[in-house]
Design a protein around this nucleic acid. Structure first.
Ligand code: MN
Ligand code: MN
Ligand code: MN
Ligand code: MN
Lengths: 220, 220
DNA sequence: TATAAAAGTTAGTTTAGACTAACAAATTTA
DNA sequence: TAAATTTGTTAGTCTAAACTAACTTTTATA
């Protein structure tokens, strides 16, 4: 009845990769590398999940979640994001620390726990990274996460995550005076190279389009 | 480095059984039946834990925790009881629902999580069953849990658990108007048969010594 | 003290879920 | 279209942790 941690992780990976790729079908190697495993391992696990009718095999090496498989994946994502919200909001974890622990907590089996946690948190719709939290039925709000490069002049937004997590980039981000939850006002954008002027703590800063593409924000 | 869920559960079981038995030494069969497993399974796991110097083999079929093994067991108990407290205090779980979920949550690996959870709960010293919560160093307050039969006349106490969990007994308990957290005033005790008079919600009730032995309370 | 019962160990099997190496099929590319 | 490359599968091995069955050692009892 209840799936193992590993089975659950495969279903979640398949869901995430298919959303990311914009197609239902995902190849064996793609799933394997997403989980950091050998293709042979993924192949045999996916065959097992096919027997359990959680995954469907399509032509040569392509896999799709069944409705039931998708339902389970969405519940897992729900749990993951609720736990991230809990760690961030209630236990003073920073946004970059929550994921690793949520990766473990998402596998706790207790329907009551999930529903009570959701209630305790006030039924949040987005996790600390700005990703939507599916409800009990698996439905969720459209993503409101943007990169800084998409924000219109005049808008005020808040930094919620970075795409590039290299030390060099993070160093640059903090030099500018930015961090998680920083308020950013987009002053204007130059058509010439799409570089932008932003206002941070009352100071005005110039950043390139490349920089702006690597910063995720929500408009406040 | 990090132990598996199963290894952890063996260490905890060994600790709890040795406390219960009042002796450091615990036999193979005892540990096996405590975990609901075959003696052969316990034997091979305990040999493995011996290699890891978490357990020590003593003469014929008797096992003892090493200092390191005991340290780990106490940390596991700390986590278990902190989670039970969280579920009870923050998520509206009832006292009899917390154990099963805490059995899973205790295996989440994150030092930061335990310390932040402890802080969030206000550094509680006892869990919802009245059992003491070890601190980061494994130290804990002496147990303050009593059976109703040990309470002196005049004292006011609170029901925190029952020893006998049979349907018949629970039925009787609720008939008297008692439940978890009920206030009980001990009116007096008859020397003749150690039966007692208690006051519950202003009503006076007579109960036998056998009844009193099966009800755990804390003096308030 | 001899025998029965209880307790503990060993050996061999099973399942989950990894891995590597060898192989086969599809897709690119020359 | 033939060769090269990429992608996927099969077979066999490994580890963790359970199981059963058979065997041995210790303890209890007649
Ligand atoms: Mn995450
Ligand atoms: Mn996970
Ligand atoms: Mn418990
Ligand atoms: Mn456990």
């Amino acid at each position: 009845m209840d799936l193992t941690k590993n089975e659950e992780d495969y279903l979640k990976a398949l869901f995430m990769l298919s959303v990311e790729a914009g197609t239902e079908l995902v190849g064996t190697n793609h799933i394997a590398s997403g989980l950091g495993l050998a293709p042979a391992s993924a192949n045999s696990m996916l065959k097992k999940l096919t027997d359990k009718t959680l995954v469907h095999y399509e032509k040569h090496g392509k896999w799709v979640l069944t409705d039931e498989g998708k339902r389970i994946a969405l519940q897992l994502i729900r749990k993951h994001r609720l736990w991230e919200t809990f760690l961030y909001e209630k236990l003073e974890f920073t946004w970059d620390e929550v994921h690793e622990v949520a990766e473990q907590l998402e596998h706790i089996h207790s329907k009551k726990l999930v529903e009570k946690l959701d209630k305790f948190l006030g039924h949040p719709e987005f996790d600390p990274h700005g990703d939507p939290i599916p409800n009990e039925k698996g439905k969720y709000k459209a993503v409101r996460k943007l990169t800084l490069s998409e924000v219109p002049p005049g808008a005020v937004c808040k930094l919620i995550a970075v795409k590039d997590t290299s030390a060099a980039f993070l160093q640059y981000v903090s030099e500018i005076g930015l961090g998680i939850r920083s308020q950013i006002k987009l002053v204007d954008r130059r058509d010439f190279d799409n570089s932008i002027s932003i206002e941070v703590d009352g100071r005005q800063v110039q950043v390139s389009e490349k920089f702006a593409i690597n910063v995720f924000v929500v408009v406040v």
